[in-house]
């Protein structure tokens, strides 16, 4: 691999990792200063800053203040955690069947991917396997291993890339906070790039 290629690969890894942290809820208690670090980190990624959605996300994150920080966890919970009806369910199956039931066929298909790689969700059966957090973690497992490239491509193609847009639309519709909105843009921008990347790879294969 070339140096450039490695850098790109590292960028992808880091962005998936950031999103993973976000959906785990790890970013709920960051300070304004720490958010500045996150924003700077994002600005340093050309994949993002040169993408419309990515740029929008970065612009929004630059407006973070104490008030937006305060309402961020509440908005995050309204969208992804509860206890209310989830406004932007983080479970794949919520988007793959129109009434949004969890633990459906799609969930099992995702589980099969994990099994194929010798993995499973901790306390399987309690947390639906297709929570975005788990799907991102699975991608993190695969992404740095050259021999897993095909599995990763399949997983992205069959799963995450099939539903992220619907998920982002729901967030955009219901978000009441700049940070949750910024992360919807971020997810959208980054996964658009991923989609293009997969297409390029496919074209190269042909």
């Amino acid at each position: 691999m070339t140096e450039n290629c490695n850098d790109k690969q590292q960028d992808r890894f880091e962005l998936y990792q950031l999103l993973w942290h976000y959906y785990r809820g790890d970013l709920l208690n960051l300070t304004v200063r720490e958010w500045a670090t996150v924003t700077a980190f994002l600005s340093s990624k050309p994949t993002l800053s040169q993408n419309d959605w990515g740029a929008k996300a970065i612009n929004l994150l630059e407006t973070i203040n104490n008030q937006s920080l305060e309402t961020f966890p509440f908005d995050f919970n309204r969208l992804f955690v509860g206890p209310n009806k989830l406004l932007a369910s983080p479970y794949e199956s919520s988007y793959r069947n129109t009434e949004g039931t969890v633990m459906q066929t799609e969930t099992l298909k995702v589980r099969n991917f994990y099994y194929h790689e010798g993995l499973q969700v901790d306390r399987e059966g309690q947390h639906p396997d297709d929570h975005l957090q788990f799907e991102l973690e699975f991608i993190l497992h695969l992404i740095q291993l050259a021999e897993k490239k095909e599995i990763l491509r399949l997983f992205l193609h069959n799963h995450l890339l099939k539903w992220y847009e619907a998920h982002c639309r729901r967030i955009e519709e219901h978000s009441q906070n700049v940070m949750t909105l910024a992360f919807a843009y971020l997810l959208r921008g980054f996964l658009q790039k991923e989609t293009m990347l997969l297409k390029e790879e496919e074209a190269a294969l042909c």
């Binding site: 809820g25 970013l27 980190f41 993995l119 499973q120 973690e137 993190l140």
Partner: peptide, 25 residues
Amino acid sequence: GSASLTALLGLGAASSQAPKGLVPK
């Protein structure tokens, strides 16, 4: 990966309420 953000922000695996994540099958 933690060379970047994870370490910078001190985001250990234990810092969150989230389930443990993926484990060996």
